[in-house]
Nucleic acid binder design. Structure first.
Lengths: 340, 340
DNA sequence: TTAGGTTACTATAACGTTTTCGTGTTTATA
DNA sequence: TATAAACACGAAAACGTTATAGTAACCTAA
C-alpha cells in the first residue's frame, strides 16, 4: 500500500515546519495567505486526511461506541444495532460490533479488548451464559472506574449503570389478556428455561393476567423449551396433554410459528380451534398462514435510546444517578387471533 | 471516569523510567528480577492494559476491519457480518460496521471516515444508489493507493480489487430448471429493476434455463418490482394477465411470500395450481404455508471468504492479481414445489 | 531612534507505547 | 590489576496530530 500522506510529507515538500502545515490547513491567519493557499491546494490534490488514530490519541477520545451482543443473525439484535447506528451517527460516533455468541468467556474477552482505549463507551446485551452464571465481575471492573456502559434488553439490578429494557411482564400480560378477551381459557405457555430473564418475566406477566381474570393456570400447559434440543419435538408435547389448549402464548416468533405448523398438521383450524400469539423479532409473523398476532418489541427505538444514554454519559450530560428506561411493548393483532 | 493507568503512572510510582516499566511488563531480563516482579504485581493489581490507540499508532496497524453494508436489518447481510466476524476474530481482528442505507452519499462519507487510519482494510457491499449511478470513484481513490478492499455480493468489474460474489445466474438457472422439471411451462418472474445487479443476473439465468429447455418466455409474465412502491399492488399484477402462470420465480423471499399469499387469496391451491420458488435470505421461507422452496445464498461462507481475502491482502499474503471468488447457490426444496 | 506592535513562521510538549542505543556499575577473566 | 563482559537501567526517537509559547524580521508612531 502506498504510504499515507501526512503533515510531515507536506512540510518536507514546502520546506516548512509541521506546525505551519497544520495551521495552514486549519486556515489559521498566522500563516501568510500565499503559502497557506499553496499548502491547501497541495493537500487537497493529494487527498490529505488527518490520521484519526493520532487525533484520537491526542484528544483522548475515539468517537467510537462498542457494541457487544450475543448474536447478530437475529432480527431483534440487528434492529437494535440499526437504532444504535443511526443515533450514534447523528451525534458523530461510529459503531464497533463484537459478538459474544452467548458465551461468558467471549464476553469477557470482548469487554477487555474494547476497553483498551479503542472505544469511548459500551452498549451490551448480556450473554445467556453470563446470565446463567450470574457473574458480572467483568462489568463491575468497568463500572467502578466509571466507564460509560449501557445495558439493553437483558439487564440486571446488580450493576450500577444505565439500562434500556422492555417491560416483558406487561407485554406478556397484554398478550394473555387479549387471548382471554377473545374467550380463551385453556392457554398454553411456550417459554424458555427460567434463567433466561425474558422467559421468566414473560411467564410472570402471563400468570398475572390469568390471575387477574380469575383463571387457573394449568401447569401441564406450561412448557420450558430448551433451544439446544429439537424444537419440533418439544413443542409437539403441547398436543399430547390430557387437556387440549384453545390458545398458545409463545415467548418468541419461532416457537409460535412452529406451534402453528404442528397444530395444522394435527388438523386444527387456526385461529378457531387454537389462537396463537408470539413475541415478534422478525418478519416471520407477517408471512405465516394465518399471519401471527404478536407483541412488538421496538428494537430500533431501544437501540436509539441506548445510544442516547451512552453518549450523554460519555459527554457528561447524564445525571449522576443511573437511568433505567423501560419500553412498553405493543400488541400487533393479526389473523391468528381474529375470529370470524 | 477515573483516569486510565499508564506506563507513566507506574513509572512515577516506582520512580523509574517509562522504558523500565515497559520492559518489566514484557518480562525482559534487562530488568532486575525483584523490580520486575514488583512492577508486574502492581500493574496486575491495577488492571493495567496497554492503550491500544498508542499501539495502533506506533505499529501502524489497527487490526480492525471496516465493513460497509447497505442495511443491517436484513438476514442476508447480518449473516455475512457473522461470517466476517468469526473469521476476523480467528485471525485477531475486530470489526467496525457502518451502514450506507443504500445511499451513495453516505457510502462516500463512510469510506472516507474509515480510511483515515482507523481500519486496516474494508469489506463493502455497494449501495443501490451507487450501482444505479455507476460512480465508483470513491472506491478508485482507495484502490489506486493499494488500500485493501474486498467487495461482496454486489460486485463490479470496473474496480481492481478482490471480490466474493454469488453466481446469481446459476442460482436462477437451477431454480427455473427445477420448475420446468416438475412440468411447469408458464413461469412468471418477479424481479427487481435492471440497475440492481442481482435482479438483472437472476433474470439472465431464468431466460437461459427457459431457452435451454426450448420454452418461450412470456414477457407479460416478467415483472420488475419497485421496492419503494406498494409491493402487494405490484405483485397482484401477476394474476391480472391473460395468460395465467403455473409457477412463479421470485428473486427474493419477500416477493415470493407475498405472491403466495395473494395466490391463496385468489383461491389457487399451492403448489398444485402454482409452484413458487424464492431466493432465501431469512427464515421466512421455512415458516410460510406451504414452506417455500428457495435458492440458498450462503451468506456466512461469503463473509468468511471476504474476511479471508481481505486479511491476506492486508498481510501481504495475497497474489498481486485480484481474486474473484464465486459461490454457487444451492436449491433447498420445500413444499411449495413438491407435487403429490 | 527606539519602544511597541504586527506578521509569519518554528520549536516543543503532549497523547501512550516500543525499541534501539547508551551508560554507569558490578562481576568475571586473563 | 587491568580489561572485558554482564547487568540494570535511562534517554530518545518514532508513530501523527494540535496547541501553546516562543522568535526573528519588519513596520509604525512618538
Amino acid at each position: 500500500m502506498r504510504p499515507k500522506i501526512t503533515l510531515k510529507t507536506i512540510a518536507k515538500e514546502f520546506e516548512v515546519s509541521i506546525s505551519t502545515v497544520s495551521k495552514a490547513l486549519k486556515n489559521s491567519n498566522e500563516i501568510g495567505e500565499e503559502l497557506r493557499e499553496k499548502i491547501k491546494a497541495f493537500a487537497d490534490y493529494y487527498n490529505y486526511k488527518p490520521n484519526s488514530l493520532a487525533l484520537q490519541l491526542r484528544n483522548q477520545k475515539t468517537s467510537v461506541i462498542g457494541v457487544v451482543i450475543p448474536e447478530i443473525v437475529h432480527h431483534f439484535f440487528s434492529t437494535v444495532i440499526d437504532g444504535i447506528e443511526v443515533r450514534a451517527n447523528e451525534k458523530g460516533y461510529n459503531v464497533m460490533v463484537c459478538l459474544s455468541n452467548e458465551s461468558y468467556e467471549k464476553e469477557v474477552t470482548n469487554l477487555s479488548l474494547l476497553t483498551n482505549g479503542s472505544v469511548d463507551g459500551l452498549i451490551v446485551s448480556v450473554a445467556r451464559e453470563t446470565q446463567k452464571k450470574g457473574d458480572y465481575n467483568h462489568f463491575k471492573a468497568l463500572t467502578k472506574d466509571g466507564f460509560p456502559l449501557v445495558l439493553f434488553d437483558r439487564g440486571t439490578d446488580s450493576l450500577e449503570c444505565d439500562q434500556v429494557i422492555i417491560d416483558d411482564i406487561a407485554g406478556a400480560y397484554k398478550a394473555a389478556k387479549h387471548l382471554i378477551e377473545i374467550g380463551r381459557r385453556k392457554i398454553a405457555l411456550l417459554t424458555t428455561e427460567d434463567f433466561i430473564s425474558v422467559g421468566a418475566l414473560r411467564k410472570i406477566g402471563f400468570r398475572k393476567a390469568m390471575q387477574d381474570c380469575g383463571i387457573d393456570v394449568n401447569e401441564d400447559l406450561v412448557f420450558k423449551i430448551n433451544d439446544s434440543k429439537d424444537l419440533y419435538e418439544q413443542i409437539e408435547q403441547i398436543f399430547q396433554q390430557d387437556e387440549k389448549p384453545d390458545a398458545i402464548l409463545a415467548v418468541n416468533e419461532i416457537y409460535a410459528a412452529i406451534a402453528m405448523k404442528i397444530a395444522q398438521e394435527h388438523g386444527y383450524v387456526l385461529p378457531d380451534d387454537i389462537a396463537v400469539i408470539g413475541f415478534t423479532s422478525g418478519l416471520i409473523s407477517e408471512f405465516t398462514t394465518p399471519s401471527l398476532t404478536s407483541v412488538e418489541q421496538h428494537g430500533f427505538l431501544m437501540g436509539q435510546q441506548a445510544a442516547e444514554l451512552l453518549i450523554n454519559r460519555i459527554e457528561h450530560k447524564a445525571p449522576s444517578k443511573y437511568i433505567k428506561e423501560v419500553i412498553s411493548p405493543t400488541l400487533k393483532i393479526r389473523e391468528s387471533t381474529i375470529l370470524e
